[in-house]
Nucleic acid binder design. Structure first.
Lengths: 322, 322
DNA sequence: GCTTGTTCTTTACAAAAGTCAATATTTCGA
DNA sequence: TCGAAATATTGACTTTTGTAAAGAACAAGC
């Protein structure tokens, strides 16, 4: 009695698989398949979409070829990197930052899947760039991976929920997710120190000291940087930082042109992985978009904070013209 | 001077990857991409096709869902199998054997990819069914695999080149390929015995005794079986075999309803893996198409010659109605 | 320097795919 | 058993895609 209707969903998925094979494998048209199945073509359209949604059909782009361009090779050789992925939209194409960012995100996502290995402990920063990576990452479980949030959370209009990046990437990789349950920036340095010693927080910060892979971006220190808009720093602080030689911001901390930490105000109020922790990671994937980040990106390279780089083609060219 | 033109192909592939990401990943239309790249849409079409041809874009159907249907589960439980893949073309669809065979081939190909593990030694038989599997197998390298031909070669109109199956599957899996350089059927039994002792042949036959996976089909013994047409057996021999209880043919050898060998004429003239070798393999994927093979398939199941089964839905139903 | 064969690109057309509102079917609760 | 809500299917429509033949760009050979 309860025999027939039990596993009906399995039957459906099996049918979807067969339809998917006919379409993607055999190359039949939707019309031909519809005729065979004696349903309307529209139904076949729906079946195929469902196949993709359910992951029965997977379309993936092999990221290895992204690191095969001349631009990529030149950068790899110039800075001694393991791999460089360049998001390219053709010659002299002028498009807005939002679209470039999306493409960089996509390229970085395939780079991430190429680089992440089973069992890895992966640290994820946040920011608009990393969010683009998270959104572009396809569902793709990797065995036994841990995904850890590198920087405490922050409320900002530009980056809705900072732990989103970590959570989303963990979900996509089918990984265990370790978020950092604290604000990224504390108003008072001594309170920050106390918070860092809180067992939950401390455990996470310790975890960040043995990463196999970290994925982060870098901010510049121009007055109009969105870090100011996000309330991370005042204009005055930024001016002061520039005066001290700061060229970039990594994990809420200023670095100079050589990629060294600069001991300046926000540092002692930050709850995040230390620059040294990033440097200690086995693989370091820096994702950057936009020529205005050139100096910041170069600083990270010099400071041994990068093994794998992912940039847009305009930035790639700019970085080579030093 | 020789700087610019060297790695141009890498540049092209990188561009193809980017285009593929925009299309398959980002979901842009070819028209939108063409506009961005300032080329015609037709060029984008070509780029996308090239991406697929070069393997930059891979579209794959997850085989696991094929073994999730009620039919599959029932067969699995009825015969204690590890996995059963059913090629299904919808309810009561009447289509010709050629199309069913193609679909079974496709399903079996995904089953093969699901089942084959890195480092496996895989034996491949031949026949129209196995050829369908070989043709449907996508380019999909599996690390350190050996592919071995199970049965000597044979010239026949139905199966153009019997080692084709082995060679093709080896190529698709990026595997080392071991063919069996001898006719499958020798005119004289004593000559066959001598040939089996030839070092090259013998080495291969020994290899077939320690298979991780074997992929084969099964013939029936009806008068109109194409094995007769292929010159493998005369009508008289087939009649005699049926009289002795033969219900199927595996690797050029008759088996009875219990899946046991029947010691009859062709056997001692055959150069191929022995039934016992198949039985000894860790995983045994039987691929069969057509209800007329029902008894033969059931015999193989009873004779412990199958762990993984791949059939069309009509045959699956027939096998359950015993 | 011109021709010839090759390869790549485009244009215009035909075929296929996607969409959406309307209709049919199923499911579930009263 | 009925009816409402959810789900699935369809037909008519628009958009997108694939194709083939013509044309442009390029390279090698004479």
């Amino acid at each position: 009695m309860d025999k027939t209707p039990r596993n009906t969903t399995g039957d459906k998925e099996a049918l979807l698989s067969n339809v998917a094979l006919l379409y993607y494998g055999e190359g039949l048209t939707q019309g031909e398949i519809a005729k065979r199945l004696k349903v309307s073509r529209a139904t076949v359209v729906n079946m195929l979409r469902e196949s993709r949604d359910l992951g029965i059909v997977e379309i993936r782009v092999d990221g290895r070829h992204l690191s095969g361009s001349t631009l990529s090779r030149d950068l790899r050789e110039a800075f001694g990197l393991e791999d460089v992925y360049v998001a390219d939209l053709g010659e002299g194409t002028e498009i807005d930052r939002a679209q470039t960012l999306k493409q960089v995100g996509r390229v970085a996502a395939t780079a991430l899947l190429d680089t992440a290995e089973p069992g890895n402990r992966i640290g994820i920063a946040w920011g608009e760039t990393i969010l683009a990576v998270a959104e572009a990452t396809p569902q793709n479980p990797v065995q036994g991976v841990e995904v850890c949030q590198l920087i405490g959370s922050m409320i900002s209009e530009r980056v809705p929920a900072s732990e989103d990046c970590t959570i989303q990437i963990a979900a996509k990789l089918g990984a265990q997710c370790f978020t950092l349950h604290a604000p990224g920036l504390i108003s008072d340095a001594s309170l920050a120190a106390k918070i860092r010693l809180e067992p939950t927080i401390n455990a996470q910060l310790q975890r960040l000291k043995s990463l196999d892979l970290c994925v982060y971006s870098i901010g510049n220190v121009a007055p109009e940087t969105h870090l100011a808009a996000a309330g991370m720093a005042t204009e005055d602080e930024l001016t002061a930082a520039r005066a001290q030689g700061a060229v970039g911001i990594v994990c809420c901390r200023y670095i100079d042109a050589q990629g060294h930490d600069i001991d300046l105000p926000p540092t002692n109020r930050v709850i995040a992985a230390q620059t040294q922790d990033l440097r200690a990671a086995k693989k370091k994937l820096l994702v950057v978009c936009g020529v205005d980040r050139r100096d910041a990106a170069l600083a990270a390279l010099r400071g041994d904070l990068v093994t794998h780089l992912c940039v847009d083609s305009a930035l790639a060219k700019a970085m080579l013209q030093v």
